[in-house]
Nucleic acid binder design. Structure first.
Lengths: 186, 186
DNA sequence: CATTTTTTGTGACCTACATCACATTAAATC
DNA sequence: GATTTAATGTGATGTAGGTCACAAAAAATG
C-alpha cells in the first residue's frame, strides 16, 4: 500500500479510486540536506508530507538565535500553517536536515480536493485538532517544566529524533542553550 | 442579531433558519465568579462560548503553581480541547474570573450539527486552524521573547484583559512570577 | 584520505528571573 | 462599614540557565 494511503487510512477509510483521486492532487519533490523548502518572507501555498527524510521549521531571532517550531520526519506534515491558512508571508523557514523526499499539495488543490471529497476535509480537520492539542501540551510543558523535564518528555515521545538530529537542534526546540542541554545529567 | 450569530457570521454566512438550527443545539449556563466549569480529571463533553464574563483554563503543577493556558472573554470559545476531542480525562480546569454567561454545545450535539450542516463543520474547521496558529505564535513567543517582551505583546493584543484580570493571572499566563511581572518597568 | 566544517563537552563567569518576606492598598463579603 | 481576603509593590538573596572561550572528536566534503 502507498505509504500516504496507509497514513491517511489511520484516520479515515478510502477506496482505491478515492486514494487515486487524493494522490492525483499531490506532487512529489526531492530536496537534499541543507536545502530549503520554505524561506522566511515568502508566501507558502503548499503543505508537505514527508515520505522520507528529516526537516525543521524554524525562526531566527534578531540576535541570530535559531528557535525550532517543529521537526518533520516520515509521515509528518510540515508547512507554515499561518502563511498557508491566512495566505500571508511566512515568519518561519523550513530546511532539510537530511536528504528528503516529500509529497506536497497546493492550497488550491487542497481546496479542490476537500470540496469534492468530504472525507478528506474530515481528515484534515482531525489533523488540525490533533495538531492543536500537541501545541497546547507543548505550551504547558514550556510553562511548567524545567529544561531537564522538557528534555525527558521529548526523549520519551520521539526517541528516534535523538538518533537523527544534532543536539543543538534539540536544544533550539526545547528552548535551552546547547551548553545547558549538554550539561543536563542525562 | 443574536451575538452568537454575529460571531459565527464573521466566518460563514447563515440564513435565519440555519441559525435557529445552530442555536437549538446549544444550552445556556450561568456561573458566578470563582465557580468552575471544568475540573481536572473529569471528562469534558462540552465546548463553551462566552456570552458575557471572563474565565481561565489552567493547570496547577505539583509545587502548587498555577499556569494559565487560555483566558476566555466575550465571543471566545473555551474548553479542554484535548479532553473534548479525544474524550479522555481533563488535565486542566476552567474557572470563572467574573460572573459569566455561556452557551455550550455537547460533543454529541456538535457531531449532529456538523453532520447535518456542512457550513458549521467548516466554521469549526476554520476556528481550529486559527486556534492552532495562535498557539504556534505563543510557542514562538515563549522561545524567543523575554518576560518583558511577552508582556508587551500580550498588552498590545489584548489590552482589555489588563483591566479585568489580576496581574498574577497575567503572570501565570506569561510564565513569570508575579513579583517579576511587577518589576518589569512598564 | 586529507582537510574543512560541524558537533559536543566543559570550565569560568554572568544575568534574568525566582523565591521568601513583609508592608500597603484595594476589593470582596458578612 | 467593619473585617476578612486578595492584589500589588519592593527589598534581599538564591539559582537555573545563559554566554564566552577553548579543545577534542566526529562528520562531511573535495
Amino acid at each position: 500500500m502507498h505509504p500516504l494511503r496507509k497514513h491517511i487510512e489511520e484516520l479515515i477509510n478510502l477506496t482505491d479510486e478515492e486514494f487515486d483521486m487524493v494522490l492525483s492532487h499531490f506532487e512529489p519533490i526531492k530536496k537534499r540536506k541543507h536545502q530549503y523548502l520554505v524561506q522566511e518572507g515568502e508566501l507558502v501555498d503548499k503543505e508537505f508530507w514527508v515520505l522520507k527524510g528529516c526537516l525543521k521549521s524554524y525562526f531566527v531571532d534578531d540576535e541570530g538565535k535559531e528557535h525550532i517550531l517543529q521537526f518533520g520526519m516520515e509521515n509528518w506534515w510540515i508547512t507554515d500553517y499561518e502563511s498557508f491558512v491566512k495566505q500571508t508571508p511566512s515568519k518561519i523557514s523550513i530546511d532539510c536536515i537530511e536528504d528528503s523526499e516529500l509529497l506536497y499539495i497546493t492550497f488550491e488543490n487542497r481546496e479542490k480536493l476537500t470540496a469534492q471529497m468530504h472525507k478528506m476535509e474530515r481528515f484534515w480537520a482531525k489533523k488540525s485538532k490533533y495538531g492543536r492539542i500537541a501545541l497546547q501540551n507543548r505550551i504547558l510543558s514550556l510553562l511548567k517544566n524545567s529544561a531537564k523535564e522538557r528534555y525527558d518528555v521529548l526523549l520519551e515521545q520521539y526517541p528516534q529524533l535523538f538518533q537523527r538530529v544534532p543536539k543543538k537542534l534539540i536544544a533550539a526546540y526545547l528552548g535551552v542553550s546547547r551548553e545547558t542541554l549538554s550539561r543536563l545529567s542525562l
